[in-house]
Amino acid sequence: MDRLQAMQVFTRVVDTNSFTKAAETLDLPRASVTTIIQNLEAFLGVRLMHRTTRRLSLTPDGAAYYERCVRILADVEETETSLQNGNKKPHGKLRIDMPGSIGRTLVIPALCEFHTKYPDIDLQLGLSDRPVDLLQEGVDCVIRVGALQDSSLVARRIGLFEGVTCAAPSYLERMGEPMTLDDLSQHRAVNYFSSRTGRVIDWAFLVDGKEVEVKMNGLVSVNDADAYLTCALEGFGLIQLARFMVLPHMRSGALKEVLPDWKPLPMPISVVYPHSRHLSPKVRVFVDWIAEVFDRCPLLSGRQSLEKTCSKRTFEELENAPALDTPVISEWLA
């Protein structure tokens, strides 16, 4: 029995909570994964997990063995990396997920640069606005906005999300332009609802350094950022979206910013990955590269915008906080 492979298979089964998903992410037949786990349990002389048709759960021995396997595999990968020839580049399959708006606007146009640097990495890029479970779905890392709520993940800040409130001129001609937050009670918004909970998400503004939520009325609700933008362009109502997404339409006159003195709270953008994969060379080079891509984008690198939008105290709190969360923004780019 190849004990190192057995450890890799076992940890992947635990991470994905599925023999089938583990087999898919490891490019192994499901029967092979089952056999490897059975042989591992026989070799160790203990039961590592309880298996039913619907779920898996670790035994106490399995939980202890999993923690040790994670550390051993990380040490092995770090050792191998340190001994690699300097000209040998990272290789293998790398699964990434990010919001469609960021992927299409910023990342995909720069992918040729990444492929030139790392031609042996097979990049699988998922574009979606839905929350992705990295461990369950076998994803190596994701780009997210807002709070990191899962303690099993590591986050590196790479940029800043700056929101803007705007609407189509056709809507403003019919309904008038709001001049204060109180005026919003007389207006309609294109609402955004959570893919996870189905709940319509309230808007949030920065007022005197504090976040103020506003519940908006609306006739249309969507759960996709591109659909959200399209509804605004068609005159269905006000929206609150990332400046980098609406700027071309504002410049063309298709959208107009409203309430410029009350802006949404800027939110950190992070690249997030599991603790167990933080030493992977292919993950490391992607994280470093995507940080450079964001740093070159003025609308998303964000430091000057953050300093202008926030008070000094609020800016310091944002810089020092582990992560921040404004639901409407976090859900769009989760």
Rank of each mutant, 00 (worst) to 15 (best):
Y192P: 15
D202E: 14
A168S: 15
A204N: 11
T165C: 01
F193K: 11
S194P: 04
R174K: 15
Y192I: 12
V154N: 09
S185R: 11
G198V: 03
S152M: 07
C166H: 03
E162R: 15
R174H: 08
T180C: 05
E177C: 04
G176M: 01
V200P: 03
M175Q: 05
A168R: 05
S152I: 07
M175R: 01
A168M: 06
T180L: 04
A204Q: 10
R199D: 11
S152N: 15
I201P: 02
G159M: 04
I158M: 03
H187A: 04
L160Y: 12
E162M: 15
A189T: 02
R157M: 08
I201F: 09
I201L: 14
V154E: 04
R157Q: 09
S152E: 10
V164F: 10
G198P: 09
G159N: 07
R188P: 07
A189W: 05
Y192N: 05
E177R: 12
I201D: 03
R199A: 10
V190E: 14
R174E: 14
R196Y: 13
V200W: 01
F193V: 06
F161W: 09
A168L: 14
T197Y: 05
V154F: 07
R196N: 10
D202Q: 14
G198F: 05
S195F: 04
A189S: 15
G198C: 01
D183K: 00
Y192H: 11
D202H: 13
F161P: 04
S152P: 02
F161I: 05
A168V: 05
A167Y: 00
S170A: 14
L153M: 10
Y192E: 14
A155L: 10
S152V: 12
G159A: 14
V200N: 13
T197F: 09
S194A: 11
I201Y: 08
R199C: 08
V164Y: 06
T197L: 07
S170N: 11
M179V: 07
V190G: 15
L184I: 01
D183I: 00
L172I: 03
L172E: 03
V200R: 06
R157W: 03
F205L: 06
D183Q: 01
F161N: 15
F193S: 12
R188A: 07
L160G: 12
E173W: 02
P178T: 02
R199Q: 09
